[in-house]
Write a protein that binds this DNA or RNA. Structure first.
Length: 194
DNA sequence: GTGAAGATTAACT
DNA sequence: GTTAATCTTCACA
């Protein structure tokens, strides 16, 4: 069951938490890949110094966040890695959820081929890695997650007790925003990044 | 047009 | 724990 627009048109922190346990699906010419979302981070543009859209900055890169929720925000980081985000909330509110780790479910052989490794635990345990394993590129920027090729479907229910809230990673430059508990993970899942 | 920095990863010591 | 790889995006001139 594919998630509808209503799911994404809510507060970014709610969307982030509820995305845990859902399944990310990407259908390409090479085949289908699916992964359970086990780790995410929320980036809340208006108040978040770590966000690209901090202070409601609207640029060529961030403008997709100003539309309604349910679109893909994809960007290149450090010149060599792709990160995939899901835009949340309504028009004019720039919020995005960074997908940090997946548990591979389908198309594992295809993921191994793309990642050039046979270790399943290393296929998707980081933002750059899962993008490579899922075949996501800059061309997916702005893709509609209510469309046919790239979307999120209903997964297993995650109990509140299984959700861990921690500080985000690799944003030391963001001053007080470093301490916000906006990283959500599924407790004890072996596929969460290190 | 030029320059600095980064929501990471893998390979080091 | 530290560092190189590597290039788009953004700010400023």
């Amino acid at each position: 069951m594919k998630l509808k627009r209503d799911f994404y048109n809510r507060d970014g922190l709610i969307v982030a938490e509820e995305l845990l346990g859902k399944t990310l699906v990407h259908i390409t010419e090479d085949g289908i890949t699916k992964g359970k979302i086990v780790e995410v981070e929320a980036y809340m543009g208006a108040v978040d110094k770590a966000a690209h859209s901090y202070g409601n900055l609207c640029s060529e890169r961030t403008k997709i966040q100003y539309g309604e929720g349910g679109y893909a925000y994809v960007y290149l980081i450090y010149g060599m890695h792709i990160c995939m985000n899901i835009v949340a909330n309504r028009e004019a509110i720039p919020e995005a959820i960074l997908i940090r780790a997946l548990e591979p479910l389908e198309g594992i052989e295809l993921m191994k081929k793309r990642r050039k490794t046979d270790n399943v635990k290393l296929l998707c345990n980081g933002p750059g890695k899962l993008s490579q394993a899922m075949g996501i590129t800059k061309d997916n920027y702005g893709d509609d997650l209510c469309g046919e090729a790239l979307y999120v479907e209903e997964g297993i229910a995650v109990k509140k007790k299984q959700i861990l809230k921690t500080k985000r990673i690799n944003i030391d430059y963001a001053e007080e925003a470093r301490d916000y508990l906006w990283r959500f993970t599924i407790k004890d899942n072996p596929y969460v990044s290190k």
